[in-house]
Design a binder for these strands. Structure first.
Lengths: 276, 276
DNA sequence: TTGCTCCTCACGTCACGTGAGGTGGC
DNA sequence: TTGCTCCTCACGTCACGTGAGGTGGC
């Protein structure tokens, strides 16, 4: 760890293409400490040996990695942890890229004009017994949470010796859309039976009956707001809406096929019990 | 433009998957005004007819379009201007995506360990006459500016009846790296001759002589900080650096080939005149 | 009357950028 | 001595999120 040559912050800036302001910020945040700090003038001096670290920081910032994570990556004791954190970040970025592509496609579709909208059907859903997982989740985490929760449900299904009685569904409280965070419930209807109590985070619950307006969403979940808009509009214009959680039923989902175009989701909006 | 049904902010949030906080913010920013505002309570009411606009906003925000631009897009009088602005944004995003991919590749290369570094050569560059364009530019705008300036230079070359005497180069003041903004000079050496004065923003200048350390960067410009780091390190460790603008000479660049891997750029770092 | 929804400030977040105002070294 | 580089606050930016504290409608 020999010091090879000390550099002013200006020289170091030129060598790394990091702005002086950014370097000072990285110092303040503990991401990249100068090799020497003059106790009288406060002048920072960097070492030529710090150039590679600065280049890594620049790349990670280009990839939008937060400074806290960069500090953790650079401070990781062994190389495995380090590359593991980087790979985790890259896969998060890949997911984000897919979302971007979906947004571009969705935008084109929107601007091309309103698509033919599937019909709205009013339906009475009876109460059912179901295995369920309930957690407080943010909108950003919801897809991953859902997949994980579904894994727990299928595991509990077999270990409790129960039989599925329909496709999985979820309950979304109003709060979830209004604040992008709320307590979600993923459930899997089962044939009622005397069974051993489900273990862990899976519980047996009664999904209440409901009168709902239903519209089927075809395709990837990124576009599902279009169906919400069309369904909500239909409900509002008929003035039949009531309070209560929105439901989704996953007729065909990622657990059935990787081709998102084949996915089918029923969106259910609560309406008056009196609606014919 | 008939009002079809009024919605509370909560209902509108559920229908568009925009958070209530976001909707209030869009109102404050003039991006999406509620159809009705109760003068006593301040309650906002939206119209079902506003759902499509909200969906477009959501897509554009997913694409990181700033609210100012979104307001402009939605307010655009004709569809041509609107789709033009969107296309411009998409191409900016595409450029950003390329940068992301370059950052991933660059990161892999950095973590794989230091590459074999090309040799540093100390060279005396004589003064030359050149056509030049000079502008104050930010680091983010520099590549586009450079391409545009080169176009002006070649146009001026033929209209002034001059002959090129070398490949194009650029001068970068220290300030440009330290603040990511500064006055850049792109120049094209010419055979001195009595010629008509160049027009517009192109001027005839004397590029001063300089003693420099030179390293050749092979490949895309996104990676050029690695060469700056290696060159700056070499200069610092020999303690031969002096003040002065850094130069780049574009031996093979985007004007010669679209294959970035073939690009070759000489980076020139000012050193003592006495260096042998 | 009790929840629930809605409202308006005021402040926080994140990674710096933008001055202001001042000092040190050649 | 004059520039130039460096320093430290303090505040701004952008698109909201996070409470605090309060009101209206069923």
């Amino acid at each position: 760890m020999m010091i090879m040559a000390l550099l002013t912050i200006g020289d170091f800036s030129r060598m790394t293409h990091l702005s002086v302001k950014a370097l000072r910020h990285y110092h303040d945040m503990g991401v990249l400490e100068p090799a020497v700090i003059d106790p009288f003038t406060g002048y920072r001096s960097y070492d030529t040996g710090q150039v590679p670290a600065a280049q890594v920081i620049r790349r990670l910032r280009d990839l939008n990695m937060p400074l806290d994570q960069i500090r953790a990556v650079l401070g990781a004791p062994d190389v495995d942890v380090r590359s593991q954190e980087i790979m985790a970040h890259l896969s998060r970025m890949e997911r984000q890229l897919q979302q971007t592509q979906a947004a571009v496609a969705g935008l084109r579709a929107l601007l091309a004009g309103p698509a033919a909208r599937p019909a709205v059907e009013v339906r009475a859903i009876p109460a059912v017994t179901a295995l369920a997982v309930r957690d407080t989740v943010t909108a950003a985490d919801a897809p991953v949470w859902g997949l994980d929760a579904f894994g727990s449900l299928t595991a509990a299904l077999s270990s409790a010796g129960l039989t599925a009685a329909g496709c999985p569904g979820a309950l979304f409280p109003s709060e979830f859309f209004e604040t992008e965070r709320g307590e979600l419930t993923l459930f899997l209807p089962v044939v009622p039976a005397v069974a051993s109590a489900p273990a862990g985070r899976v519980q047996l619950m009664e999904v209440p009956a409901a009168e709902v307006a239903v519209m089927t969403h075809e395709g990837a979940a990124d576009d599902i707001d279009r169906t919400y808009g069309a369904l909500g509009t239909a409900v509002a214009e008929r003035a039949i809406g009531v309070d209560g959680p929105i439901r989704e039923y996953y007729l065909v989902s990622v657990v059935d096929t990787d081709d998102e175009r084949e996915h089918r989701t029923e969106v259910c909006w609560p309406v008056f019990r009196t609606a014919a």
